[in-house]
Design a protein around this nucleic acid. Structure first.
Lengths: 205, 205
DNA sequence: TAGATTGTTAATCGATTAACAATC
DNA sequence: TAGATTGTTAATCGATTAACAATC
């Protein structure tokens, strides 16, 4: 990459990757116009975004489909396997554990933890639900840097504290609460109420 | 509201609402500094955002906690009940159906639909899973304006087409694909691979 | 009055996009 | 060469935030 990739661009790169996959041809070229249409953004935006990558298009032709995917993966750091731990084996946690799509992005769910005795020992997609007590041990053993919080709201903060204390550097928070967390940890929050709230706003106008 | 509320502000309003709820005192006041700390944003940001609302703070004192929540709800259009239909009764759909928190935001899941015979007729939080065939009927009967797509990738586009044809104006897409959709429909997409991809990027630097 | 906090301005910063020379 | 598309510039647009007068 030439310079630091802007946040807005980083946020769009996975979308481009998704679109390139949806296009599902692995050879041939793809123009910025094609990708812009698929992703629902401006084509100048696409070219600008891709200019931060090492990907090179060919004037008059477009971008090599396969090369582009590789370069996006490389920019996002998806060239190595990332072990991920999921806390909470409820519906949300199970949805994650069962989702095959992560593998192609380089994420491997190495464990799914819960406090509920009734869930511990059950299997979710070949993964046995383990007791929450093993969190620190698993994070250390597997070198986990990414944790997903899929617990009820009440447990989220304490789980977050334990994850960061164990050395986890990135957290995906699916619990409907705002975590208090050290600045050197990246957090992404997915809150379906928030999303519905934004949709409700747009219904008005 | 004085003028059109900027997108960035709209996206933060649900977060403020969440924080105010987390604070959990229903009387008393809350300063922009308090709310900024809870939400992890700048206090000038908070004041600017709130200036688009009818909420009035009191100089030297702060904002009335209860009034602020009401005004945010009002601005987002959360003062009436919004019927919501969920398509797909897998783990993700069930997580939605089981989540009690929607009710306090004014969302009521009126139906959960699936094509899978094995799921139809089963109960998810008091809601019987109904056949996908009833989609149009239910949307019309209940006056549904918001649909949630929690199907596999392969079914998402066709479900989206049917929802919009039935008059649904807002879609929350949880399927890992980008929908082709008319511009007059608002779409929010939640893609956990995207979120993990962004986290992976931040692990690098 | 003194202390606190809002509401708003204006400066800054970052993101978007039209336009077009470069070039395949 | 003619047509197509990139890569980049520069203009514009929108978002953020420091600063401070207003005022409770």
């Amino acid at each position: 990459m030439k310079v630091r990739i802007p946040d807005a661009t980083v946020a769009r790169l996975p979308r481009y990757l998704r679109c390139l996959t949806d296009m599902s041809y692995t050879d041939g070229t793809c123009s910025s116009e094609d990708l812009a249409n698929a992703a629902g953004v401006n084509s100048a935006q696409v070219r600008k975004d891709l200019s931060f990558l090492e990907a090179q298009g060919t004037r008059g032709v477009g971008y090599d489909h396969e090369d582009l995917r590789d370069q996006i993966r490389k920019a996002l750091g998806l060239t190595t396997i990332h072990p991920v731990v999921v806390i909470g084996a409820g519906n949300m946690g199970s949805a994650l554990a069962n989702y095959k799509g992560f593998a192609t992005w380089g994420f491997e769910i190495v464990a799914i933890l819960d406090v509920d005795e009734k869930r511990i020992g059950t299997s979710s997609d070949g993964l046995i639900v383990e007791p929450l007590g093993r969190l620190e041990e698993i994070v250390a053993e597997e070198g986990v840097k990414i944790g997903v919080i899929a617990t009820p709201r009440s447990a989220a903060q304490s789980v977050s504290d334990r994850l960061t204390a164990s050395g986890v550097k990135s957290i995906l928070n699916l619990a409907p609460t705002i975590l208090k967390i050290n600045e050197d940890v990246s957090v992404r929050r997915v809150d379906l109420s928030t999303e519905l709230g934004i949709l409700a706003f747009h219904l008005q106008s």
